[in-house]
Design a protein around this nucleic acid. Structure first.
Lengths: 216, 216
DNA sequence: TATTCTATCTATAAGAG
DNA sequence: TCTCTTATAGATAGAAT
């Protein structure tokens, strides 16, 4: 836009490139602000020079804007935090955590109160997907944990049984017993109770209390 | 930069503002790219229109750039989590919920990956409850939003109908029509399509296109 | 709304300090 | 590296479509 027309490709001459960077950077920042003001838009602009220096503009809070961006963009927060498998260990980790914290913070503040009213339908949709994904992961982990605990308990019981106690259920019956996932999330005690409930009737009081103590 | 010089402040006329937004947005995106190419810089640009629509440019991966930004900017995660904006309401709210937010933050970062394995069953249970609550709030807000949009559209349609158009569905039928929540989050147009789908058959082309245009 | 058409206004490439 | 100057390329306000 000046004396001569130039092609849009990396400027070879280093000095010229730096000069151009300085000029155009200013222009870009200015125009970013103008757009935000004139059109009531939210604008975030981040520029890193080739030497790594940072320049930025944000019409409001950069954090807010980036958080909002996260909601709109591929809500793959996980995918985002994963890809840096190869390089900078500490660095990428820090930035990842920072990002995570920010994201979560924003999400939390949104799901906490009525901030939700400020969100668009699309944003709500993304939040929903996000929360659902998290919830599913939690549920899955919980179920696995419970299944493991139950397995452990069964093992312990079988050990006891093999030590001479007279079982009210055989080993085979225990293995085939169906555990109701609805009754999870409690202590070992309640799980044990659950196992007992698979029997046809309640155990005699003496043995029951005895076993419960050992399992608790 | 044209017929007349304008002052850099919010354009009052809505139409003019939108037109300007469209033009300047393009210009800004173009210049962002030019700067990146010419000067070998890393540039990230995020623009939200006043209506919440997202436009973006990133010279490389937006994720990488934002991560890089996090490192350079206030490396301070604490300062970041405090961005309680500018309102007293928010602030008091923030301090009141401060601890809880921090806790949830930790929990949420845990539900991201396999960190869940470090949690006890009880902790998982808490997480589950938390997420369920948030999810419910999001869903409720979304449903309300959708219901509102639908109501608006119905009102518009009824207005059209009352202006003499011969309806294929009566007002009562419209009110009783069941809207499928799966099809939300889109423009008025798609919702209108949805409403039409509640009819026994597709509307004649002439009227359909006519109404669609007026609703869009 | 988004484009197209101009007349103008801005940004900026070169060059000099 | 930044600034100022100046000529020119580029962006865009307003109007029309």
């Amino acid at each position: 836009m000046a004396r001569e027309k130039i092609k849009i490709r990396k400027i070879d001459n280093i000095t010229a490139r730096q000069v151009t960077f300085s000029k155009r950077r200013r222009g870009l920042l200015k125009k970013a602000e103008e757009l935000a003001v004139l059109c009531d838009a939210d604008v975030a602009l981040v520029i890193f020079s080739a030497t790594g220096k940072l320049f930025e503009y944000a019409s409001s809070s950069m954090q807010e804007l980036l958080g909002k961006y996260k909601l709109h963009s591929t809500n793959n927060v996980d995918k985002v935090s994963e890809p840096s498998l190869n390089l900078q260990l500490v660095e990428s980790d820090e930035s990842r955590m920072g990002k995570e914290v920010l994201d979560r913070n924003r999400e939390l503040s949104q799901l906490r109160g009525e901030d939700l009213n400020g969100l668009t339908l699309d944003e709500l949709q993304r939040l929903e997907t996000l929360l659902e994904g998290g919830l599913n992961r939690v549920l899955q982990t919980k179920d696995e944990r419970i299944a493991n605990e139950i397995a452990n308990l069964q093992q312990k019981m079988m050990n006891l049984i093999s030590k001479g106690k007279r079982p009210r259920t055989t080993a085979v019956e225990l293995e085939n017993s169906v555990i109701n996932p609805e009754d999870q999330g409690q202590s070992s005690e309640s799980v044990a109770t659950n196992v007992y409930s698979c029997n046809s009737g309640p155990p005699p009081e003496d043995d029951c209390s005895d076993t419960s103590l050992k399992l608790a």
